[in-house]
Write a protein that binds this DNA or RNA. Structure first.
Lengths: 222, 222
DNA sequence: AGCGAACCGTACCGTACGGTACAGTCGCTG
DNA sequence: CAGCGACTGTACCGTACGGTACGGTTCGCT
C-alpha cells in the first residue's frame, strides 16, 4: 500500500493544468462519472487534443485529478508533543472532526465514487490512490499520536494499527457508506463536532488507562 | 427510508426470471458495471427482447437484480427472548460476524459498487434499495436485541439508533470502504469470528451495565 | 391438426463517446 | 518579419452499446 506510483505521476502540474484538473473536479462533483472529455475541454476552455497530450487518455486524466486533489489535502499534520489527558482528547477530537469533514465533502464523495466504480474493472489505480491518500494517510498521521499517548501512560494497546481501526470505526460508523449510496445526512459543523467528541470519549473509554478515564465517565453512553 | 417502492417492484420473479437475475449477479461480480445487455442475454440464454419485455430497460434490470439479491438475504431474523449476559454477547457476535460476512462477499461488493456508481447521477433508486436492505435492514433487526438487552438490565442507552450506529462502526471499521476501493483483505472465517468477538466486547464495554461487564474485562483492549 | 403466445437468435438502428486529424491563432525569439 | 512551437476549436472516425424489429422455433391449448 505504500509503494505509491507504479504509474508515472505528473510531478508538478502547471497552473494551466491545475485549472484543467479543477474543472474536472467540478464536473465530477456535478455529474459524477458521466464526465466526458468534451465536457472537460469545454469547461476548461482547452482543446481535447491538449487533454490527450497532457494526460494520455481518460484514465490518465482521472488519475491526475485524484492525485491533484490528494495533494491539496495534505495539511494538518500532527506534531509530536508532551501529552496530558486533555491534550490527547483534544487531538483525537480534532482528528475525528477533520476526517468526518473530509469524507462528507462533496469532492470526497465524488472522487470515492469514481474510484469505486473503477475498482470493479481491476487495473484499479484510482482505488489505490484514494486509499493511500485517505484511509492509510490518516492512519499514518494518527498513529504517532496514539503512540505518544501510550508513552505518556494515557493509552494502553499492543497494536497501533488495531487501535486506529477501532477509532476509524467509531468516527466513521455508517456515515461514508450512506453518503456514497446517496443518503442525505446532516453532517453540519455542529453535528460533526458532537460526533467527534463522542467518538473520542468512546475510544478513550476503550483504550485509555485509569489516568484518562475518570470515574465520572467510565459509565455508559447515553 | 422505510417506504419501500416508489418504483414498481417485480413481486414474484418466475424461476426463469430468477435464472436471468442470477446471471446478472454473476456478470456483475465478474465484470462490474461493464455489464452489457448482450452479455446478459448470452449468459442467460435468452433474447434481448425478452429482457426488455420483462425489465423495461437496463436500469430496471439492475433494480430487479438488487431486489432479487436482497430477497435472498432476508434470513436469520432474531427472535426475542429472555436474555442473560452470555446470550446477549453471543447474539451480538452472531450479528456482527454475519454482517462482516455479507459486506465482504463478492456479491455485496459488486452490488454496492454499481449502486454507488449510480448514486452519482441522482435518480438514485439503486442506492436507496441497497441502503434499505443493508444498513437499515440490519439496524431494524438489531435494535430489538438491544432493547431486550436494556429491558434485561444488561445494556444502558437512551437511543437505540445511536447505540446501533456505534456497533455498526465497531464491526465494520474500514473493511467496507477498503474492499469497495479494491484493497485485498483477509476476511477469512476465522478472522471474521475474531473481529466480531472483539467488536462485541468493545460494544459491551461501552454500553453494558455492571451486570455484563465483568471486572476482568473492564480493562483495555490489547 | 391448427393456432397463438412466448421466446430465441440475429440483424439492425441511432447515438454517444473516446480518440485523432487538421486548420487556424497566439505569442515568443532571432 | 519569418519561423516555430504550443494551443484552440471543430470536424471526423470507429466502435460499443442501448434499444427495436423480425423471422423462426417451441410448446401448450383446443
Amino acid at each position: 500500500m505504500l509503494e505509491a506510483g507504479t504509474a508515472e505521476l505528473m510531478e508538478q502540474p502547471t497552473q494551466r493544468q491545475q485549472d484543467v484538473l479543477d474543472a474536472v473536479l467540478g464536473l465530477l462533483v456535478e455529474s459524477g462519472d458521466a464526465l466526458t472529455m468534451n465536457a472537460v475541454a469545454r469547461r476548461a476552455n482547452c482543446s481535447k487534443e491538449t487533454l490527450y497530450k497532457w494526460f494520455g487518455d481518460r484514465d490518465g486524466l482521472l488519475t491526475a485529478t485524484v492525485q491533484w486533489q490528494a495533494s491539496k489535502v495534505r495539511a494538518g499534520t500532527y506534531d509530536r508533543q508532551k501529552l496530558d489527558a486533555a491534550a490527547l482528547r483534544e487531538s483525537l477530537e480534532r482528528f475525528g472532526a477533520n476526517w468526518l469533514k473530509v469524507i462528507s465533502s462533496r469532492t470526497s464523495i465524488a472522487l470515492n465514487r469514481v474510484a469505486i466504480a473503477h475498482a470493479a474493472s481491476e487495473k484499479n489505480n484510482l482505488g489505490r490512490i484514494v486509499l493511500a491518500n485517505g484511509r492509510f494517510a490518516i492512519g499514518e498521521r494518527l498513529k504517532p499520536l496514539l503512540e505518544d499517548g501510550r508513552a505518556a501512560g494515557l493509552l494502553s494497546f499492543d497494536d497501533a494499527e488495531s487501535a486506529f481501526r477501532c477509532f476509524f470505526g467509531l468516527i466513521g460508523r455508517d456515515v461514508q457508506i450512506r453518503l456514497l449510496l446517496g443518503d442525505r445526512l446532516d453532517m453540519s459543523e455542529a453535528q460533526i463536532r458532537h460526533d467527534a467528541a463522542q467518538a473520542a470519549r468512546q475510544f478513550l473509554s476503550l483504550y485509555g488507562t485509569d489516568k484518562v478515564v475518570g470515574p465520572n465517565e467510565a459509565g455508559r453512553f447515553k
